[in-house]
């Protein structure tokens, strides 16, 4: 099967799933009588509707090719960074490093990926961003909580720019026998991460009894984690035909993606709750912000990239 044919099959499958989800929402809406039941169904409908939009954007992005994919992910990083900074208390003296993060580091990272230079894009933010952000901050002459303020900016750029940029960086991997098909790897990553989130939510709503992390992420349950995680890992194995992996390799790799995604979800949830918020933002109806959708991706993308780069190139 050619690349395009595989893409069409995967997107076709997603559209079938979303149609089922939309129908389920409509049927559940008729049966919901209690106040909280109705609120849950309304949120479910909003989530599904937002998924239709996100899938449409993704399909158009893939159809338009690698450059557009990079630009779209640069905007994803931009919106995620915007949300992160909005929730993080900054001082007027952080103005200069904030400008640096938004208008130099962010575009710089994506330009380095466009130039297919792994050696530079892998160290640009962890080394040079890490050192430059606090260095530039000193110019304002404000030492109040300097270490805390530096750490906030470093975390913001690491998660929202560096980690997320590993997703489109998959496009530059040259895997023998898989040339020109790297877009499918990106699709595979996004599919597994998001499916894992969705199935954990579904299993949690259906069978959830035991809270997994009541303080950090109150909606996560052990039943949801196990049910959603196992199902997603299996689906990841069955989807091996769009990847360069065998069934067992794909199963193992999707397990790693799911695990990293869960850790990402927990970490970023702890972070936003520590900042006093329930959601990162308001951009995506029913989901919250961009970062509420990308939290798992930010952890899974670099791990997946390195696994593939180490074992398959």
């Amino acid at each position: 099967m050619a690349l395009q044919e595989k893409m069409i099959w995967v997107f076709g499958g997603v559209i079938v799933l979303l149609t089922i989800a939309s129908l389920a929402g409509a049927i559940l809406g008729k049966g919901a009588h209690s106040e909280s039941g109705r609120a849950t169904v309304e949120n479910l409908k909003a989530r599904v509707n937002a998924w239709w939009v996100m899938i449409a954007v993704l399909a158009v992005t893939f159809a338009l090719g690698e450059t557009v994919t990079l630009v779209v992910f640069a905007f994803v990083s931009f919106f995620a960074l915007r949300e992160f900074i909005t929730l993080t208390p900054t001082r007027p003296s952080d103005y200069l490093p904030l400008l640096l993060a938004f208008f130099v580091i962010l575009p710089g990272q994506y330009l380095l990926i466009a130039h297919q230079n792994y050696g530079t894009f892998a160290i640009f933010i962890p080394v040079y961003g890490f050192l430059l952000l606090p260095a530039v901050a000193t110019f304002a002459g404000d030492t109040h909580e300097f270490l805390e303020r530096s750490a906030k900016l470093q975390w913001a750029t690491m998660i929202t720019v560096y980690c997320i940029s590993y997703a489109p960086a998959l496009l530059l991997l040259k895997i023998p026998g898989y040339e020109g098909s790297s877009a499918l790897l990106l699709l595979y990553l996004l599919l597994i991460v998001q499916l894992s989130d969705v199935l954990q939510y579904v299993f949690g709503k259906l069978f959830g009894r035991t809270k997994l992390a009541p303080v950090v992420s109150p909606s996560k349950t052990v039943e949801g984690l196990v049910g959603g995680g196992v199902t997603t890992t299996l689906i990841g194995g069955l989807l091996h035909w769009i990847t360069p992996f065998t069934f067992w390799q794909a199963t193992a790799i999707s397990f790693v993606i799911v695990a990293a995604g869960v850790l990402g979800g927990l970490t970023l949830s702890a972070m936003k709750r520590g900042l006093g918020a329930k959601d990162w933002g308001v951009m995506i109806e029913g989901h919250g912000g961009m970062l509420d959708r990308m939290d798992s991706v930010s952890f899974a993308a670099p791990v997946f990239f390195h696994v593939v780069r180490f074992f398959f190139t």
Binding site: F78, R82, E83, T90, P92, F102, G281, V282, G289
Partner: peptide, 18 residues
Amino acid sequence: ENLHRSLPKGAILPIPMT
């Protein structure tokens, strides 16, 4: 909300902020 953080007095380029 928040715009006092985005563009402090004297600054020219706004910091993106929701």
